[in-house]
Design a binder for these strands. Sequence first.
DNA 1: TGACGTTGTGCAAACGTTTGCATAACGTGG
DNA 2: CCACGTTATGCAAACGTTTGCACAACGTCA
Lengths: 325, 325
Amino acid sequence: MARHAQVHVSTVSRALSEDPAGVGIETVRRVRELAAMLGYHRDVGAAGLRTGSSRLIGVLVPRLTDLVLATIYESIDAAAGTAGYTTVVSNTLDDPLRRRARLDALLSRRLDGVIIGDSHVGDTAAFELQQRGVPYVLVMRKLEGHLSVTTDDHLGGRLAAEHLLALGHTRVGVIAGDLLASTGLQRSQGFRTAFDAAGYPVEDHYVVNSGFGALAGRMAGDQLMHFPTPPTAIFAVDDLTAVGAMGAIRAAGKRLREDVAMIGYNDVDLAANLPVPLTSVRSALSDMGRLSFEALQRRINGEEAESVLLKPVLIPRATTVERWE
Amino acid sequence: MARHAQVHVSTVSRALSEDPAGVGIETVRRVRELAAMLGYHRDVGAAGLRTGSSRLIGVLVPRLTDLVLATIYESIDAAAGTAGYTTVVSNTLDDPLRRRARLDALLSRRLDGVIIGDSHVGDTAAFELQQRGVPYVLVMRKLEGHLSVTTDDHLGGRLAAEHLLALGHTRVGVIAGDLLASTGLQRSQGFRTAFDAAGYPVEDHYVVNSGFGALAGRMAGDQLMHFPTPPTAIFAVDDLTAVGAMGAIRAAGKRLREDVAMIGYNDVDLAANLPVPLTSVRSALSDMGRLSFEALQRRINGEEAESVLLKPVLIPRATTVERWE
DNA sequence: TGACGTTGTGCAAACGTTTGCATAACGTGG
DNA sequence: CCACGTTATGCAAACGTTTGCACAACGTCA
């Protein structure tokens, strides 16, 4: 209680508020000075009790060790921070039980809103929040009928396909990630659509579902490379998965690009700095994070917000072309 | 207010507590059932106001997009979650201003404790917490005089050195990361100590300070490879940095292992699944996270806690040996 | 000089819990 | 049948804020 420190009572509250209207200019100065001296901070929790706003927003991600989600979260947190919000992130590991528990814990904190980065077909979190009246936004992965900020994954897949077609590839493989996530599904669909249109449809067994991550990519890549006629190019819907697949290509005794070209997705920092720099479809991860927070903020303030669909861009590098940049 | 729902008042509080002593067994059942029906959750914030404990712990990291810190944070969060705590993580980006702001925001939440993962020589956060009486623990990076959970980085450096010495390397380079972080400093010191002892001291200009991350590694690697007599082996104090350096080796037209061997540090998931699997010194990241939380918990409960120093292990792979495992 | 507006401050209620204490209901043993 | 112990519940205060309202002091204008 900083009030004992001097003489007043709860004029302190006003003096410390952003707009100290109706308080003596001199008092404001003195109070603030004293607060700084004493290292006093208003208790946001107690304030929230009164105001009904916790200034806390929750972020649900599958896992933070996934570079992609970590990047998005970082930008959400930065945007939220400057707007005076604190974020709480929850690793759900795509495990329903764990996610239930974490969501309950979050709801107990009376958060002002939630950003969902791990939505999945058949997922109930979004519906539950909707029903409880808690503002929320989906990011990265979309779900029909919910506000979301994503990139155009279908287009991203087409960009990858068109790049490979232009280079003359006709027998290609796809490492499709997790088909229950809208990202994996739409990227591979977009890719196949373009190859269909070009008259070189991708056979079903050249499309392998893998999950995300380097190990998953390695196994999927091994599978593709062991076909009697392996593909001359591979599209992986995630950069780390692509890295794993690059290992499979090497293990099969083939050369990257010359024998088998490779395209990843997301253009994570690492992609450009790999020993063999990886061609990748860049989705504006930081923008997505920031925009999703802004959309959520609008929802919290009761304003209208519309879903955002960002345009991806293909960045050619050494795994598909000899010279680039 | 679940109380209106039925008939009672704040017997609800007791009924919902972990040990509902002194409450009718029947009442307990009814209340809990009803709470589940209504999807009611106790407001932790309000409870904290009364009990003085927010059940919130803060975690300071340089950046979450660093796989190493993300892994540690994940395990901290898991341990904290099962103990009924919520964690709030803050990216400080090793920027003093930002860190000040974030720490203030955290203190406003009246957290029960803090885990510091970004300590730096000359850093004041630990001292400030100490002075304010907020329990805290350092993880990953240590600082003299503060409770910490780390791995023996000096030993880790020696392990790397001994491995290279056993393979016959005598002219080696070190990519030392950030010398203001205890990790970078001690790993390179340990490494050099072992080479000194073997009679092949590492010349100063073969040790380059770089910062962490793939791009930093690439630049440092380029520098080393452009020497008239480049090293026959490189020790990088971080896996991602090593990946960048592998790019430099390739760009110089040299072969990994045959011409230049490479050792990383931390044994991040990715290391084993790179196209050329990376020899790395494994530090038990998950254990560190868990143990740091447990130490913090002890501190919070007023018990004694001792610093922990874990033993690292070297995992040989393709960048140093032909066959492994 | 009296009425009135302005400006700065204090009062008190409310937010949703927890918890020590009082009290009601009910058996039980002497 | 009364006193007493046990068990279940209610009461009220307290935690640290915010905020509508009342109020005091002061100047100003007619």
